[in-house]
């Protein structure tokens, strides 16, 4: 464990807890893409299924349980909670996320570390995580401006992946055989997807107005 990875995990944890807290306290999910939340639930379900078979550390197990629990409860809130679900604008959140699930699955069948169920699902979860934010970014473009909590959520998610890139660089130089091209490339693609959001996010911080994304 290195500081970049710990900071990355804590930032990731903060992003989901900030979102869950927002939805729970103000009983609203305005501006949040249910599609992105469902994709993240699939990412965690397919990546953490080894939770019950391989024990790595208490930290690892605890974090996996928290991520699984929070992502599925966010999906539950938006789909099922009688008050929260009313604030979900499904006619804006129209990104056909099956169009990204299938290509990621096909890609995982082609590119993986080993052709086993666990490895293919692991690669699938990495490809899916890289593009899971797309419905949320599309929704942000549509709704033009966003409230601060949604901005913070996307910002923390981007920061978590950027910190992970530092972690991979650190591990590459400190651990001889630590090579995970699949993780590195999908992680890099994911961070690049956030790049333009970061640009507008910092612009809005500068003139500290509402975050206006270009049409």
């Amino acid at each position: 464990m290195n500081i970049f990875r710990l900071a990355g995990d804590l930032t990731h944890l903060a992003s989901v807890l900030v979102l869950l807290l927002k939805i729970h306290t103000i009983k609203s999910c305005a501006g949040i893409s249910l599609k992105t939340q469902e994709l993240y639930a699939i990412v965690f379900a397919t990546r953490y299924l080894d939770l019950f078979t391989t024990y790595i550390s208490l930290y690892n197990t605890l974090m996996k349980l928290i991520f699984l629990g929070s992502s599925f409860s966010i999906v539950w809130y938006i789909r099922k909670h009688k008050i929260v679900r009313r604030s979900y604008d499904k006619d804006q959140d129209t990104f056909r996320h099956y169009f990204i699930v299938l290509p990621c699955f096909v890609l995982a069948l082609i590119i993986h570390e080993k052709f086993t169920v666990r490895e293919v699902l692991w690669a699938f979860s990495l490809y899916l995580e890289a593009v899971a934010i797309l419905p949320q970014l599309v929704l942000l473009q549509r709704t033009r401006n966003i409230d601060n909590l949604t901005g913070q959520y996307v910002f923390l998610l981007g920061a978590y992946r950027a910190l992970y890139i530092l972690n991979w660089i650190y591990r590459y130089f400190t651990e001889p055989h630590f090579v995970h091209w699949i993780t590195w490339i999908s992680g890099l693609v994911q961070t690049l997807l956030y790049a333009d959001f970061f640009y507008y996010y910092f612009q809005s911080m500068k003139n500290n107005g509402k975050l206006q994304l270009p049409a």
């Binding site: 995990d9 080894d50 391989t54 570390e113 666990r118 972690n167 995970h180």
Partner: peptide
Amino acid sequence: DSDSEDKDEL
């Protein structure tokens, strides 16, 4: 090659 056991990252 990196065996699948060293998937210690979240």
